[in-house]
């Protein structure tokens, strides 16, 4: 059944990202909070570019390229994720050329403004999606949670975030088992028949409630009283600060100056 494979993929992807996050590289050693802040600055800078901007965005590619290589992350799975995120963005963006017909000529090529905005959106999609994935792939959920705690995000929410993350794989396995059992007895169906929508999903909910009850008991037996205590936070070192400042400066430069345009003007001016 297609759906159960999708589930296995999800679990597999989570394992993969977790593997990536356990590496020990220069990037992995950067303080999680610093990485989070850098990512947010980066995203804001990327998104703040106007919709006709393409060339000026290109220098921002340095960030994902450098992080991927320095953190020794595999490129293919990250590219795959990026493609999965693309359809909605492309779906909205592809209509731009249809609605914006104004054309202009570049070196003999006639392009419409709509295409420029479309490519600008696609480029932004690539940059933003890769930045978010790189953050988690080089940090991991547990360290990110400690960064959130340092930002004073309430304990309740952080704990809940961790619990959700933790139990995705457990419940995925449960659903996969249910769906496998279902499809073995209903080989001709593509999905779940409406007659059992309620009972199949409902059973799963009841089981989930029971599991939550057991988890709660396990927590209580180890002294849980509603407060979630995290360990000591890592300190932010000079190196972390340098990381943040250098990237921050670079992003600012890339935002203020159209670097490729400057280089190009220099070159074409010289030639």
């Amino acid at each position: 059944m297609k759906t159960s494979e999708a589930g296995l993929n999800t679990t597999f992807d989570m394992r993969l990202l977790d593997d990536m996050a356990r590496k020990e590289t220069v990037i992995h050693r950067v303080h999680p909070l610093v990485k989070l802040v850098t990512t947010v600055i980066y995203l804001t800078v990327v998104v703040s570019f106007g919709s006709y901007e393409i060339i000026g965005l290109l220098p921002l590619l340095f960030y994902p390229v450098l992080v991927i290589t320095l953190a020794e992350l595999p490129i293919r799975p990250i590219l795959k994720r990026m493609l999965l995120a693309a359809p909605f963005v492309i779906g909205i963006g592809i209509l731009n050329p249809v609605f914006d017909h104004q054309v202009f000529v570049v070196g003999g090529l006639t392009l419409s403004r709509g295409w420029i905005t479309f490519f600008s959106i696609v480029l932004k999609c690539i940059l933003t999606v890769s930045a978010a994935l790189l953050l988690i792939a080089s940090t991991g959920m547990d360290k990110l949670a400690s960064a959130l705690r340092m930002l004073k995000i309430p304990r309740l929410f952080v704990l809940q975030l961790l619990l959700t993350y933790r139990y995705i794989s457990v419940l995925m396995e449960e659903v996969t088992r249910i769906l496998r059992a279902y499809s073995m007895r209903a080989p001709q169906q593509k999905g779940i028949h409406p007659k059992v929508w309620g009972s199949l999903t409902g059973q799963l909910i009841l089981r989930t409630f029971e599991r939550a009850q057991r988890v709660y008991q396990a927590m209580c037996l180890r002294g849980f009283t509603g407060e979630y205590n995290t360990g000591a936070h890592e300190r932010i070192t000079v190196r972390d600060t340098v990381y943040l400042v250098v990237w921050g400066l670079f992003f600012a430069l890339a935002r203020i100056y159209n670097i490729p345009m400057l280089i190009g003007s220099l070159l074409t001016g010289v030639v």
Binding site: L163, Y167, L171, I192, P194, L204, R211, F224
Partner: peptide, 26 residues
């Protein structure tokens, strides 16, 4: 009701799992 905390967490995971279920309209 602090026992709602794990319930919220596990129910969040349930939503992920439930999104795998393909409800078809015959």
């Amino acid at each position: 009701d602090e026992n709602k905390i794990p319930l919220m967490g596990v129910m969040g995971a349930f939503i992920f799992a439930a999104q795998m279920i393909n409800f078809t309209i015959p």
